[in-house]
């Protein structure tokens, strides 16, 4: 179960510009009367609740705040205001292969990436063969990942990330990776994970997938919930809106 209470997220724009050694020391000595910074509210007062086993899709144009919202739920960012309540272990599939070290072999990376995702050693030992089998990279286990093609890297990453059965699954546009054959396989895997009773938060620009997989859809627009409700209904409205823009 996930509960989002009044979450707002503020970013300061132009942080890079305003930050220099000189300003650092100036600001050190004058805490007050700082210049007002340019602010950008990526999320404004978001409220919703996801029940156990529910599959929630998020739609909205680029920059609407979908990924920021998922990162807040995953615990990567802390909201400026509001709070997030979540129960159960989370498997964030926000970007695959983030923890790979290109100098290590596939075998070593499975352990490293598994550890980063919070798996225990015994768990990885137990699932190692399954991971390798799914990735179909048996022949390249002791090759440094540096020499892999990008498709092979994502296949490995996908296989490591999806080996768990998490209670909460966060998916940001990673439904299908690799060549056509692996694409089908990974889509099947994702679908079986999603249908397997886990709670899913799912961001995609593919409305077909959203309709197919989600019970509820939340439509974000400029950091606010524009519409929320039954999947087909929201998707119809969203598509009509996007086409008439």
């Amino acid at each position: 179960m996930i509960k989002i209470n009044n979450v707002s997220m503020r970013f300061n724009l132009g942080i890079e510009k305003n930050f220099s050694l000189k300003l650092f020391f100036i600001n050190l000595f004058k805490h007050k009367n700082k210049e007002p910074k340019k602010e950008f509210w990526a999320l404004k007062n978001i409220n919703f609740e996801v029940k156990k086993g529910e599959v929630v899709g998020f739609v909205g144009c680029n920059g609407a705040g979908k990924s920021t919202l998922l990162k807040i739920v995953a615990g990567v960012m802390k909201p400026t205001k509001g709070s997030v309540e979540k129960y159960g272990n989370i498997c964030p599939m926000i970007e695959l292969g983030a923890g790979f070290d290109m100098d290590l072999t596939a075998r070593e990376n499975i352990y490293l990436n598994g550890a980063i995702l919070g798996y225990s050693k015994d768990f990885i030992n137990e699932k190692f063969d399954a991971i390798v089998k799914f990735s179909e990279l048996e022949d390249f286990l002791d090759v440094p990942v540096r020499n892999f093609s990008s498709g092979m890297v994502t296949r490995l990453a996908f296989s490591v990330a999806t080996i768990v059965e998490p209670e909460i699954l966060i998916v940001d546009e990673v439904l299908s990776v690799g060549d056509i054959a692996f694409k089908q396989k990974s889509e099947q895997k994702m679908k079986s994970m999603i249908k397997g009773g886990t709670t899913v938060l799912f961001v995609s620009h593919d409305i077909r997938q959203i309709r197919e997989l989600c019970n509820t859809v939340i439509w974000l627009e400029n950091g606010m919930v524009k519409m929320q409700g039954e999947a087909n209904q929201v998707c119809n409205e969203y598509e009509a809106y996007m086409l008439n823009r």
Binding site: D101, D103, L104, E108, Y111, L112, A115, I116, G118, S120, K121
Partner: peptide, 17 residues
């Protein structure tokens, strides 16, 4: 305790690399 294994992995990664 929870992140001991990750710590191990990071250290052994450093050695290997």
């Amino acid at each position: 305790k929870k992140y001991k294994f990750l710590m191990n992995q990071l250290i052994s990664r450093d050695f290997k690399v």
